[in-house]
């Protein structure tokens, strides 16, 4: 069963798109807000590897249009039901005055994978919860 799901998320950041964009392509910057380890080769077909907790997220960059848009594929290494390359994350940065509106679209996420995605994500949630308190 594969019910395609699109997750969307958005945030407004008090910085220009040029300031925000590197956080999607520079591994040292990426892991400041998601995951703990990353190996990124930001060019079309280049490697996108990110470990979130025990979940090895693997994919590749599809489109890179600084400072406006970045698209990469997303899957989990060794997971037949969600193989690397099976889903796509699209990020759009839009300048709005001094701010940047970040829109994120996670395409083609199969519904039945949501709860197994959970394990990796909850580690991130714990980290977030600690930071906020």
């Amino acid at each position: 069963m594969t019910v395609a799901e699109v997750l969307t998320a958005t945030v407004r950041i008090g910085a220009s798109p040029a300031d925000v964009f590197p956080y999607f392509i520079d591994p040292a910057l990426l892991v400041q807000w998601i995951g703990e380890w990353a190996d990124l080769h930001p060019e079309p077909g280049g490697r996108f590897a990110l470990d979130i907790g025990k979940t090895p997220v693997r994919g590749e960059y599809v489109e890179i249009e600084p400072p406006r848009r970045v698209v990469f594929t997303w899957g989990v290494a060794g997971k037949d039901s969600l193989p690397p390359g099976s889903t796509t994350v699209e990020i759009v940065l839009t300048a709005d005055g001094p701010d940047t509106v970040v829109q994120l679209f996670h395409h083609d996420l199969p519904a039945e994978e949501f709860d197994s995605h959970l394990a990796g994500w909850t580690a991130k949630l714990d980290q977030l919860a600690r930071l906020r308190t």
Binding site: W33, I34, V102, L118, K124, L125, L128
Partner: peptide, 18 residues
């Protein structure tokens, strides 16, 4: 809940960038 996870990560991004 999962649809809240990306927003959580993006909130973290906002915090870090700012």
């Amino acid at each position: 809940m999962l649809s809240e996870l990306w927003p959580s990560a993006l909130e973290r991004l906002k915090y870090v960038v700012e």
